[in-house]
Design a protein around this nucleic acid. Structure first.
Lengths: 247, 247
DNA sequence: CGGACCGTTGAGGTGAGTCAAAGATAGTGG
DNA sequence: CCACTATCTTTGACTCACCTCAACGGTCCG
């Protein structure tokens, strides 16, 4: 259990509301949702492949990832999660986990019982749509990663990933002046991009040499967003961030 | 417009029912759903990236794919669709298409208005769950493809893809004696696996030489399922086919 | 019978992998 | 506070799975 800077429910409400405007009543119902907080150290499995969870989780602080292993033991990270994300919302309707979720950094995670989510969805059909939409955005991100891993060079892939994380962190207010905390090792970047850790090292050096990113410890900053975007062939369409027309 | 061997609604109902048992009332409601049939030639775009469709489609005969292009014009196919699939159900909640859908072979496609789907979901909340679940299985397949493209050799990837298509076709009764129609060119296989068409040719030769697949024209057959499964590191868990316990 | 695809083959090239060792950094405990 | 360790990053030399380019053969269909 950990102390939180603000109520965990608020983060979820703000995120759902930002892309799917909610009524006061719906916000109130979400506010009532029981969320069990838990502090988790880095590199711990949170849900494992093959399990049948009775709850879904909500990332509050830190980073997590979804991954699978090949028979040779090589790991593919299929998604990175930032605060506000619900990595295994899918388990609400897919009984058995087909991937594992693990912490990347130390983090705070909230757990919500499926039972409670189901009741909420029954009573507020528009919330069903909001949660459904969240899982659809996840799917869209998987698609973009497929394009990334299948067709782009290591250099472009890396630039693309940095762009994505920047934008997603910006959406939850965790970016200041094009700079953000990102405690991720090169080995994990390698697993996310489908290259080796050695090649991640060389690729990051190239990006730094080209002035596209700057790194100090776990802090990443982007000196020239336009050039990084271009290098990463990044178009934020697939994140489906703005639904409100004209927003 | 094309003649169909049976009502298009039946195919959808059978598929939803197989993993998410429906009541008679729900089946009746689905039966009423207006579906507009259309025959489509091979290699035609059905929905384009950036569009805002007011309908979703249902594949009835033939094959389609979802794809995106990199800036260099390289194409990544992110999913293959077989009869019974609804490739752009996501557009019900994500206004703008983030990928394109195109026919791979000549095919018959049914179109369902979002308006009608929304009304159906409002009146039958359990159908909402059934459709939601369909999109979650799509997402699970994207994840498996990420593992495939990111971590496995061309040989393993190809074997895995053949396994997946076989199982999915089997589920809709389109496989007979480990053999099925699969009118797909090597160039499209290349785009789906993230390798070149030349390498697809060599990889298929290797699989044939090893006795894992046999091919005549557009017919593929699998002489030894167990060995192909092993070669492709294939575990059907991610397709989430059996929900009914003990089925 | 002729063109348009599609699949095959060969030779040579390259982006990324592998292996191994050395440097940097961070965490731990005395 | 420092010594000790474990982990992470960097570097260099070598290898290889897959790519590129180019030519050729098959097959379908008007």
């Amino acid at each position: 259990m950990a102390l939180m800077p603000h109520q965990p429910n608020d983060l979820m409400i703000r995120k759902l509301d930002s892309i799917f405007p909610l009524s006061d009543e719906e916000r109130g119902a979400l506010q009532q949702l029981p969320i069990l907080l838990k502090g988790i150290k880095a590199d711990r499995e949170i849900v494992g492949i093959g399990e049948r969870p009775a709850q879904s989780c909500l990332i509050l602080e830190g980073f997590t990832c979804a991954y699978k292993l090949s028979h040779l033991g090589k790991r593919q990270i299929m998604a990175l999660h930032v605060p506000g994300d619900m990595p295994d919302l899918q388990s609400l309707h897919l009984a058995v986990m087909d991937m594992s979720i693990a912490s990347i950094s130390s983090c705070t995670v909230g757990f919500i019982q499926h039972e409670d989510l189901r009741r909420l969805c029954e009573q507020h059909p528009r919330l069903t749509a909001a949660f459904w939409r969240e899982t659809l955005v996840d799917a869209s991100i998987y698609r973009e990663w497929l394009l990334n891993v299948g067709q782009r060079s290591a250099y472009t892939r890396m630039a693309h990933l940095v762009c994505e994380i920047l934008i997603r962190l910006k959406a939850v207010g965790l970016v200041e002046k094009w700079s953000f905390q990102w405690p991720i090792t090169q080995e994990k970047l390698a697993d996310a991009l489908g290259i080796t850790a050695v090649h991640v090292s060389r690729t990051l050096q190239a990006l730094r040499a080209d002035g596209l990113i700057r790194m100090e410890k776990t802090q990443v900053s982007v000196p020239d967003w336009e050039r990084l975007k271009e290098a990463g062939e990044f178009d934020p369409l697939y994140l489906h961030l703005q639904v409100r027309k004209g927003a």
